[in-house]
C-alpha cells in the first residue's frame, strides 16, 4: 500500500509518533541519571559548607573525596534546627539538618514564618576547635543567592564565608563568590555588647577596615551587594539569639 506522505493524516501521525518516541527516550534517560545528579548536588553542598570554614583547594578536597572529608569535619549529629525565634526545634523524625532545603523554603510564599527551618551545622577543624556553620539564602538582582557563614568557637567572630549565586551579572554581581569579596567578611563580629549587630554593605570605601561591620560592596553590583546584606542580616539575627542564649 502506497502511503501518501504529504497527506494531513500522515503528517499528523508522523509528528505525534516522533514526539512520543523522543519523549519516552528522554523521560527514561532523565530518571535513569537522577541518582547521579542528586549525588552531584549533595556533594556540591558539602563542598560549599566546607569552603566556608577552610580553603578547600589547599586542603586537597575535591568532588572525589568530598563525602569522606565532610564527615571528618562536620558532625551532622550535632547539627540543630532552629525556628525563626532562634529556639531549637524538635527534629521531625528522619529529617536531618543537611537535607533541609532552605532555598525551597525561602521561595515558598505560602510557608508561614514560624514553620521555616534554620539549620545550624557544627564542625570541628583540624585543631579540634568548634566551628559553627550557618546557611543563608536570599535574592540577588536576577535570581537566588545563597551561601554559608562560618563562626569561630566564640560564636561571634566570622572565620569565613562562601557565597554563591545562580544568575548574577558576570563581572558585576557575580563577583560575590570571588575571594576578594568573601575575604572582606573575615574576622568581623556578629555581636556587639551581647546583641546582634547589623552588617552594612557600603559604597564609600569605608568598609576597608577589616573586622568591623562595614563591608565594601561591589562596584556596579549594588543590588546584588544589597541582597547579600539583607540575606546575612535577616538570617544572622535569628542565629544570634540562639548563640546568646547558649552562651548565658
Amino acid at each position: 500500500m502506497a502511503i501518501n506522505k504529504e497527506s494531513n493524516q500522515f503528517t499528523f501521525g508522523f509528528a505525534i509518533g516522533l514526539v512520543v518516541i523522543l519523549g519516552v527516550i528522554l523521560a527514561v534517560l532523565s530518571e535513569g541519571l537522577k541518582p547521579y545528579k542528586d549525588k552531584n548536588v549533595r556533594i556540591k553542598k558539602q563542598l560549599d559548607i566546607l569552603s566556608a570554614m577552610m580553603d578547600v583547594e589547599k586542603e586537597g578536597i575535591t568532588r572525589a573525596n568530598a563525602e569522606v572529608e565532610f564527615e571528618k569535619y562536620v558532625k551532622l549529629k550535632d547539627a540543630v534546627i532552629l525556628d525563626y525565634t532562634g529556639k531549637v526545634k524538635k527534629a521531625e523524625d528522619g529529617v536531618s539538618a543537611f537535607d533541609i532545603d532552605i532555598k525551597k523554603e525561602f521561595r515558598d510564599k505560602t510557608l508561614a514564618e514560624k514553620d521555616k527551618n534554620y539549620p545550624l551545622f557544627v564542625a570541628k577543624d583540624k585543631n579540634d576547635k568548634t566551628r559553627y556553620i550557618i546557611p543563608v539564602v536570599g535574592k540577588g538582582l536576577w535570581g537566588p543567592i545563597w551561601g554559608y557563614i562560618c563562626l569561630k568557637e566564640d560564636m561571634n567572630t566570622v572565620l569565613g564565608v562562601s557565597f554563591a549565586h545562580k544568575t548574577e551579572t558576570p563581572g558585576l554581581g557575580a563577583e560575590i563568590n570571588k575571594p576578594f569579596f568573601m575575604d572582606r567578611w573575615k574576622n568581623s563580629k556578629i555581636m556587639e555588647k551581647g546583641s546582634f549587630r547589623k552588617y552594612e554593605v557600603v559604597k564609600d570605601n569605608s568598609g576597608a577596615i577589616k573586622g568591623d561591620s562595614k563591608i565594601d560592596g561591589i562596584t556596579g553590583g549594588t543590588i546584588t551587594s544589597k541582597g547579600v546584606e539583607e540575606m546575612v542580616n535577616r538570617t544572622l539575627k535569628i542565629y544570634a539569639t540562639y548563640f546568646k542564649n547558649k552562651k548565658s
Binding site: 528522554l26 534517560l29 532523565s30 541519571l33 547521579y36 545528579k37 552531584n40 556533594i43 568532588r63
Partner: peptide
C-alpha cells in the same frame, strides 16, 4: 537534552 543530562550527571 541527552548531552545536557549526561554532562550534569558525570561532569557537573
Amino acid at each position: 537534552i541527552i548531552v545536557d543530562q549526561v554532562l550534569a550527571a558525570f561532569l557537573p
